[in-house]
């Protein structure tokens, strides 16, 4: 049994990031209490002014969260050093043995700082978590999704970042409304040595976030720059749009759409790659996906080696036909 603190990542407008719901579900399965941390906006007024909203609180309560620690600091909590100090203090005061956070770049920075400051054992990009013989054991895939490992935390305190789509969200039998505890925190001068000169959140695209979407349709060189058919299928499936490095480097789509070891790592339930050969860098960012569909005109494209359903064909005919048929089947 492990009491858990969950970092409640949210957008500047207070919208809860989708994978946080998975974290709460996962934390509940460990048998201990589940509390959350909600970082309020920066002193200069940027970021969420208040929150979580009543609706978000009710949703978190239904998932089994019992308490929300709402923190306002005298520094911007987007700074990893400032947030790490806040979390270290809360881990200490609540006695929680585990901090769970979504696997974002920022949260991994916070995890690294907590490891140094508290001696915590850190596992990043976990896709499973259980208590075995009193120890936390996390599952994760490594080497571009080609190996699965299980990693035990041997320190008394654990910090685990979890990949999106690792857990099916389930409400608790005994959910309620979490109580909210406010904290005003002063962070150290050392945590303020980095100045956040500017932070611009990407506007919502109307599609799910690439990193946490259940369905991703991605395009590569074979699209020859036209992503409209990729976008059409993504919209029919309610999915996100991704791309290879070639496509983003060519400027066909924004860099934030790049899937790969140096871009976004994804593990959706369904990945569809169109005109993507499957270079090792791209595979490293998507190989852990549930079902992999590949459409490529080259029968020797390496992506077919890992595809559950491969189509050797022209994406400009296959994609619109699939979109139209899916619309028809869904009525």
């Amino acid at each position: 049994m492990t009491d858990t603190l969950v970092l409640l990542d949210h957008a500047a407008d207070g919208t809860l990031r989708t994978p946080v719901r998975e974290l709460v579900t996962l934390a509940r399965s460990l048998g201990g209490s589940v509390q959350g941390v909600w970082a309020l906006g920066a002193p200069d007024g940027t970021g969420a002014p208040d929150g979580p909203s009543d609706a978000t609180l009710a949703e978190l309560g239904a998932l089994g969260l019992s308490r929300v620690h709402r923190v306002r600091a005298d520094a911007d909590l987007h700074l990893s050093a400032a947030l790490a100090e806040v979390l270290a203090a809360l881990l200490d005061s609540t006695g929680a043995g585990l901090l769970l956070a979504t696997s974002t770049f920022e949260n991994k920075e916070v995890a690294a700082r907590l490891a140094v400051a508290t001696g915590a054992g850190v596992v990043t990009d976990a896709d499973a978590l259980a208590v075995e013989d009193g120890r936390l054991v996390a599952g994760k895939t490594v080497f571009a999704g080609t190996w699965t490992t299980r990693c035990a935390v041997t320190a008394p305190l654990a910090v685990v970042t979890v990949k999106a789509n690792s857990v099916v969200v389930q409400t608790a039998d005994d959910g309620g409304t979490p109580d909210v505890v406010d904290h005003d925190v002063a962070v150290s001068a050392a945590a303020r040595r980095v100045t956040l000169v500017e932070r611009t959140e990407r506007p919502a695209s109307g599609r799910p976030d690439l990193g946490s979407a259940h369905v991703v349709v991605a395009g590569g060189r074979g699209t020859e720059g036209d992503f409209s058919l990729v976008e059409e299928l993504a919209d029919v499936l309610g999915g996100a749009v991704g791309a290879t490095r070639v496509a983003t480097d060519e400027g066909w789509i924004g860099h934030d759409a790049q899937i790969g070891q140096t871009g976004v790592t994804i593990s959706p339930r369904l990945y569809i790659g169109a005109g993507i050969s499957g270079a090792v860098h791209h595979r490293g960012g998507m190989q852990a996906s549930g079902t992999i569909v590949a459409i490529n005109s080259d029968p020797d494209a390496p992506i077919f080696e890992i595809a559950d359903f491969g189509i050797v064909g022209d994406l400009t005919t296959v994609l619109p036909q699939a979109s139209a048929e899916l619309r028809r089947l869904k009525g």
Partner: peptide, 20 residues
């Protein structure tokens, strides 16, 4: 249970059926 097909005109329809 991997499937690899050559498009002979109906691959999009077969993909849709596979997904459903």
């Amino acid at each position: 249970d991997r499937v690899l097909i050559n498009d002979t005109g109906d691959a999009g329809i077969r993909l849709a059926a596979y997904l459903v």
